[in-house]
Amino acid sequence: MMRYLSRWTTAAVLWIAFTSLAGAETLAATVEQWGLLGSWAVDCAVRPDRDKGAVLTYEIRGDGRVMYRRDFGDAKDENEVVSATVNAEGLLNLMVYFPTLHQTRQFGLLLAKDGSLRAIYNRSERGEYTIRDGKYVKTGAPTLPQQRCSQQSS
């Protein structure tokens, strides 16, 4: 009986390890194929600044994790992308865990034909939106398109 239990335990551990690895590869492949990797900003010539625009960087680490780095000039953080799917309209739906905020946020990004990137929605796990239908909820102003930047200094 113990031998069978041991085999089942080993099989379960291996299954979990392989499905986690497969999930990471699928996530990395999704963001790479969609065209998200790299650094993005409203104006790449302007130094990162909380009021004038952050530089947002998406990268795949050696261990396969997809990371989302935000550079606001006076503050920087790094967060893990835990999910990425593309819907029929081409919207990339990301779920990112922000450890410093103790929350997961979901946001949708659209890649325009000119290569620019635009935030369509951004919401907390409780469904509270900061961006909805491509507009900031607080002001009603449309989100600005972001351009892919060449290498940024960290």
Rank of each mutant, 00 (worst) to 15 (best):
I120F: 11
N122Q: 01
K113C: 01
Y136I: 04
T10F: 05
A54G: 03
S153Q: 05
V137T: 14
G115D: 00
V46L: 12
M2Y: 06
S124T: 11
L111Q: 10
Y4L: 10
P99H: 02
R126Q: 13
A119L: 05
Q106D: 07
R126G: 03
L92W: 05
L144Q: 11
F72M: 11
Q106S: 10
L117M: 05
A12F: 09
R50S: 12
G108S: 08
R70P: 04
A11I: 12
W40C: 00
G134M: 07
G127E: 06
S116Q: 10
G53W: 11
R123M: 07
A29K: 13
R105A: 09
G62E: 12
R105D: 11
R50H: 14
Y4G: 03
Y121R: 07
A84M: 01
E128S: 04
V31W: 06
L14N: 09
D114L: 10
D77A: 01
Y58L: 01
R3D: 08
E25G: 02
K76C: 02
T143V: 14
N122Y: 14
T104S: 12
Y58M: 02
W8G: 08
P99A: 02
E59Y: 00
T85Q: 04
Y97W: 13
A22M: 10
F18R: 12
T26K: 13
G115R: 03
Y136W: 15
S83P: 00
L92H: 04
V31I: 12
C44W: 05
A41P: 01
V96P: 04
L101G: 09
Y136C: 01
P99V: 02
D71L: 07
W15T: 15
C44P: 07
G62C: 08
G90Y: 12
A54Q: 08
